[in-house]
């Protein structure tokens, strides 16, 4: 049996080990930097838009009335049985729908809804969202977006 040449470098020399360790350190440094970067991008500022709106006195919404509040945007309905609210945000891609007399139509992609917010014509699939209305002490109303 022959002995291996003592001058030949071992398969994984000390130098190789140092090189690998140095590379490992550099790459883990880079990885740490990336993790920090992910945290840097994770900052979320406080929400700017309010999540509830004061609708004012109930007397402003007599039975049979339809009031459009473009700032929310929503339509406030009083069918006689109480106050309800329908969001005017199209369920397709979020444009604000317009009142076309017979219902609502979306200016962006032509979705159409009836007075109750049900879809008449696509591309929207879902009916307009019904918003929660809270009656406070039987006198004023507050609308919640959530």
């Amino acid at each position: 049996m022959k002995l291996t040449n003592s001058n030949a470098a071992p398969r994984f020399s000390r130098r190789d080990f140092l090189k690998a360790a140095t590379h490992f350190m550099f790459w883990s440094g880079g990885l740490l930097g990336l993790l920090g970067l992910a945290r840097f991008f994770s900052y979320k500022p406080a929400p700017q838009t309010p999540s509830e709106f004061d609708l004012g006195a109930l007397s402003a919404y007599p039975p049979g009335s339809r009031t459009i509040r473009p700032d929310i945007p929503a339509v406030i309905l009083n069918s006689g049985a109480g106050i309800t609210a329908i969001s005017l945000v199209c369920t397709h891609l979020g444009c604000t729908v317009e009142d076309n007399g017979a219902g609502f139509s979306c200016p962006c992609h032509g979705s159409r809804y009836d007075q109750a917010g049900q879809v008449i014509k696509g591309p929207a699939q879902q009916p307009l969202k019904v918003l929660r209305v809270e009656i406070i002490e039987g006198k004023t109303a507050r609308l919640h977006l959530d």
């Binding site: 090189k19 360790a21 350190m25 883990s28 440094g29 740490l32 930097g33 993790l35 920090g36």
Partner: peptide
């Protein structure tokens, strides 16, 4: 946010170690 000090110190330490490795190799 959590303090930046531990993260940055770990990063500095890792980079410092790799400098050490480089210097060592450079000498050899």
């Amino acid at each position: 946010p959590e303090s930046e000090i531990p993260g940055a110190l770990i990063l500095a330490g890792v980079l410092g170690l790799s400098i050490f490795g480089l210097v060592y190799q450079y000498r050899r």
